[in-house]
Amino acid sequence: MIIVCQKPLKILKISGITLFPFIFIRNLEDKKNKVLINHEKIHLRQQMEMLVIFFYIFYVVEYYYWLFRLKNPYQAYGQISFEREAYANEHDLNYLQKRKLWSFRKYL
């Protein structure tokens, strides 16, 4: 895991994004935000499980599936199984120690 602070994230209005093996955060002080970092670490684990490229393919396909159904980009993002797992468990800082392989499937 490599954490990088990127000012361009301010344009996107997001706090962080994970592109294996990097976690890009908007502000340097976000490096201390344990919940945000945990959320992004969950994405790192998901990406490793799916051999990285399949994660991105599945993520984009799932996003467009939900976008087509819901006609709302924010709601579509919120329905992606990877995001649902990460948001549901981001406050549990021990989640990754007990997480089972391919746990995102229960959020499909």
Rank of each mutant, 00 (worst) to 15 (best):
M1N: 09
I3K: 04
P8K: 14
P8L: 15
I11Y: 11
I11R: 00
I14E: 08
S15H: 05
I17M: 15
F20S: 08
F20W: 13
I23T: 11
F24I: 09
F24D: 06
R26E: 15
R26D: 03
V35T: 13
L36H: 09
H39T: 14
E40D: 15
K41E: 11
K41H: 05
K41P: 00
H43M: 14
L44F: 13
R45Q: 11
R45C: 12
Q47T: 10
M48V: 13
E49Q: 15
V52N: 01
I53E: 11
F55C: 08
F58N: 15
Y59Q: 07
E62H: 01
Y63G: 10
Y65M: 09
W66V: 12
L67Q: 00
L67P: 00
L67V: 08
L67H: 01
R69H: 03
L70G: 05
N72S: 13
N72C: 07
P73E: 14
A76R: 01
A76F: 01
Q79D: 03
I80H: 02
S81Q: 04
S81V: 02
F82I: 06
R84E: 11
E85L: 05
A86T: 01
A88R: 02
A88Q: 04
N89L: 07
E90K: 02
D92N: 14
D92F: 05
N94E: 15
Y95S: 10
Y95N: 03
Q97M: 03
L101R: 02
S103E: 13
K106H: 06
K106Q: 09
L108D: 09
L108S: 08
